[in-house]
């Protein structure tokens, strides 16, 4: 692994992203608009918005990173550039690291905008500090990236890659406690929920919401998300083959 090549790769991926102005605008603006919409829907119940809006702050970067990573990497695989890169000094981890840095920057920018809008204009309130929310959102987005990387190996077209969303992203949204409290789900479903990493991102956010101080429970939940991101990255890197048929 070479740090120099990792940063060159990250620079290239960011440049690709910046050349696509429309996508940049969508990435930066859509989460804020959606959270504003949710806030208007829950107009009469600001305390409900405090928990739902907060969860969305971490969920959007996760979903966005999953989508853009799976599609960009699929393009690398099908467009021949991945094969070409595998004949250059670029290591697999350089490539994955480049993606993590580039899309991590994108996810962080998105989160800063969405969190600013939520805190300053939509009246979002948390007992704990905003930086902890930001940190949880960025770690969740890296998990999304790693999952997208892994999934791109199983799609042969962009259409298929999009179809993986309902399989890998939607269940985590439904079971993380956003639409229904986890302790009121069927027992077996709680077990499934326990196995999904985004559940722990939500638990960490709940800690920030209710405690003015950073708690040990928050660090524990956040480490679980980080560990899941690491495992998915290793699995994803394993799908990058230097030799193929």
């Amino acid at each position: 692994m070479s740090l120099r090549i990792t940063f060159i790769t990250a620079g290239r991926i960011l440049r690709q992203l910046l050349n696509d102005r429309r996508t940049v605008v969508l990435i930066l603006a859509v989460p804020s608009l959606m959270i504003a919409l949710i806030s208007a829907i829950m107009d009469a119940a600001p305390d409900v918005f405090d928990s739902v809006g907060l969860i969305l702050l971490a969920f959007f970067p996760f979903m966005m990173m999953f989508m853009i990573t799976s599609i960009t990497l699929l393009r690398e695989r099908t467009g021949g550039t991945l094969e070409r890169l595998m004949t250059t000094p670029t290591g697999k981890l350089d490539l994955v690291g480049g993606y993590a840095i580039a899309f991590g920057v994108a996810a962080a920018s998105q989160t800063v905008i969405a969190a600013s809008v939520a805190y300053l204009f939509l009246g979002l309130e948390t007992a704990g500090p905003a930086w902890a929310v930001f940190l949880i959102a960025v770690v969740s987005s890296l998990f999304g990236m790693a999952l997208g990387l892994f999934v791109s190996a199983f799609a042969t077209t962009e259409f298929q890659a999009i179809q993986f969303m309902p399989v890998f992203v939607v269940p985590q949204l439904l079971l993380c406690g956003l639409i229904w409290p986890r302790d009121q789900m069927a027992g077996w479903l709680q077990g499934v929920s326990d196995a999904l990493p985004i559940t722990y991102a939500v638990k960490a956010l709940t800690e920030v919401q209710t405690n003015p101080e950073i708690t040990a429970a928050m660090w524990r939940d956040l480490s679980i998300v980080a560990a899941a991101a690491l495992v998915a990255t290793v699995l994803g890197a394993a799908t990058l083959r230097r030799r193929t048929n």
């Binding site: 290239r12 690709q16 696509d20 021949g80 094969e83 004949t87």
Partner: peptide, 12 residues
């Protein structure tokens, strides 16, 4: 290695 189909990034 120069592949048969140009392996370059269309968005760069």
């Amino acid at each position: 290695y120069v592949t048969q189909d140009a392996s370059i990034y269309p968005d760069l």
